[in-house]
């Protein structure tokens, strides 16, 4: 489980996170949603250690992430934009990450086969299309069978078939007991994948619970309308 307590972060004059509390359940898919500028990216970057919180703490299975950097070997991160060194190949990147993580044994190359990337792995990244880079991005996040997956807009730029393959893979990972944290602007994707929803506004969690309950509370029958309802209440408040 990932426990976030009283997280505060300020960038200059802008207070991005205001005492954010959140529990992310193990073996579940949690969608982080909210209006632009609500602090979704900042939250994810603090969990990854890319950004440091001003105060507050994050525990993964009871252990503070400030203790050491090794917790990141349990995380697979898929950034929003897959931009890689232009002259390296996907195979080079896989080897580099394997070296850095000290990963041993077999890796999960299921996506390579299913996305038919076999022929593209040896080509320099600069010759690959945007969609293919995004596929490489997904492969890299899942390669080392991490317990925790943090996926920032995983289906952006993918064609419907590839997007479906990636989503099936995410559900299969959840089935294997992995914890998934997801952001996306495509609400129908989140609806398909998420067990839980964390709704962020103004640097705080305004709702955290199951997708089912969110729809019940807002009396809407899909996530898009439920989130829209939350945002409308947010404005009225």
């Amino acid at each position: 489980m990932i426990e976030v307590t009283q997280l505060e972060k300020r960038f200059g004059a802008l207070q991005v996170l205001r005492g954010l509390d959140l529990n992310i359940g193990s073996g579940r898919v949690t969608a982080v949603v909210g209006p632009n500028g609500a602090g979704k990216t900042t939250l994810i970057k603090i969990i990854l250690g890319l950004t440091r919180a001003d105060s507050g703490s994050i525990y993964i299975d009871g252990k503070s992430i400030d203790a050491d950097d090794d917790y990141r070997s349990r995380i697979g991160y898929m950034p929003q934009i897959g931009r890689f060194p232009e002259n390296l190949s996907a195979l080079d990147l896989m080897a580099l990450l394997r070296d850095l993580r000290g990963a041993e044994g077999s890796v999960d190359e299921e996506l390579v086969d299913r996305l038919r990337l076999g022929g593209e792995l040896r080509k320099p990244i600069r010759t690959l299309s945007g969609g293919t880079r995004q596929k490489v991005n997904a492969v890299l996040a899942l390669l080392f069978r991490p317990d925790i997956l943090i996926l920032d807009e995983p289906t952006v730029g993918l064609d419907p078939i590839s997007s479906g393959i990636v989503k099936d893979k995410i559900l299969a990972e959840r089935g294997a007991g992995r914890t998934v944290v997801l952001t996306s602007h495509i609400m129908s994707d989140l609806e398909e994948l998420a067990d839980d929803v964390a709704f962020l506004a103004d640097g705080q969690i305004r709702y955290a619970g199951t997708l089912f309950d969110l729809k019940r509370i807002t009396r809407q029958n899909n996530l898009e309308r439920a989130v829209a309802a939350m945002m409308t209440w947010e404005k009225a408040a």
């Binding site: 250690g49 990141r72 070997s73 950034p79 931009r83 890689f84 990450l97 850095l100 993580r101």
Partner: peptide, 16 residues
Amino acid sequence: YGAREFTELLLAQPVK
């Protein structure tokens, strides 16, 4: 600047 996103990916690995 061009390597910014990749640097972030590397920072998300268990490295100092």
